[in-house]
């Protein structure tokens, strides 16, 4: 390096307007024309739930839905997703209510450290949309591109199966105790009135 003429590593790319419908909201941002979708989603569109694990398509943490198809955003040029409908983990919940797949991941231990969870949720959501009655084998094939280092996948598969049964209408959310509605009476049951004549 010493004494050689320095060649710039990355030629500056011109910025362009990038627009897409992200989680139901149309977004228009200025991004370099060679930007990667993952960077645009995280840095410009505010979707920090899309995770960067490896930058080379090996871990699946950055999976998003592009027009309903699960795609690795770290291997997608932003321009290629321009004008598309993009769903990230932030777009799964319906207002304050978790989607069944989210609730099931929480209730069945499908998420431990949680870093791979957004990618798994998106992949499973795409699977359940297409196939509401997947076998364990089909689930395994769907999530084979996602890496989880904590759970050993077993509880993830259980979570997806539980969500599938909710999608099919066979069961309700399994654990109402952990529903997002805290007990309205933190003081416990009302103090009972003393029965008349009860001696203390």
């Amino acid at each position: 390096m010493v004494g050689e003429e320095h060649v710039s590593m990355i030629p500056a790319a011109p910025s362009e307007v990038w627009s897409a419908e992200v989680n139901g909201q149309s977004q228009e941002v200025l991004a370099p024309s060679n930007a990667i979708l993952l960077d645009v989603l995280r840095d410009k569109a505010g979707c920090l739930g899309v995770k960067r694990g490896c930058d080379m398509g090996t871990c699946g943490c950055c999976t998003v839905l592009i027009d309903g198809e699960p795609r690795l955003s770290c291997l997608t040029m932003a321009q290629d997703a321009s004008g598309c409908e993009i769903t990230t983990v932030e777009g799964l919940a319906d207002g304050a209510h978790l989607a069944p797949i989210q609730q099931c991941f929480a209730d069945h231990g499908g998420s431990q450290c949680g870093f791979c969870t957004p990618g798994f949720l998106i992949t499973s959501q795409a699977l359940l949309t297409k196939n509401p009655n997947p076998s364990d084998k089909e689930i395994a094939c769907a999530i084979e591109g996602n890496l989880c280092r904590c759970t050993g996948y077993q509880q993830i598969i259980e979570s997806i199966q539980a969500a599938a049964s909710i999608h099919r209408g066979e069961s309700e959310l399994a654990n109402p105790a952990s529903d997002a509605h805290p007990d309205p009476h933190p003081s416990g049951p009302e103090e009972p009135t003393m029965p008349p004549g009860h001696a203390r």
């Binding site: 739930g49 919940a93 978790l98 949680g114 949720l121 952990s178």
Partner: peptide, 16 residues
């Protein structure tokens, strides 16, 4: 018991 921070993790709000 569901992890107390599970909801943050499944909604993408957990901040790494």
């Amino acid at each position: 018991t569901t992890l107390v921070d599970a909801n943050a993790k499944v909604t993408g709000q957990a901040w790494y």
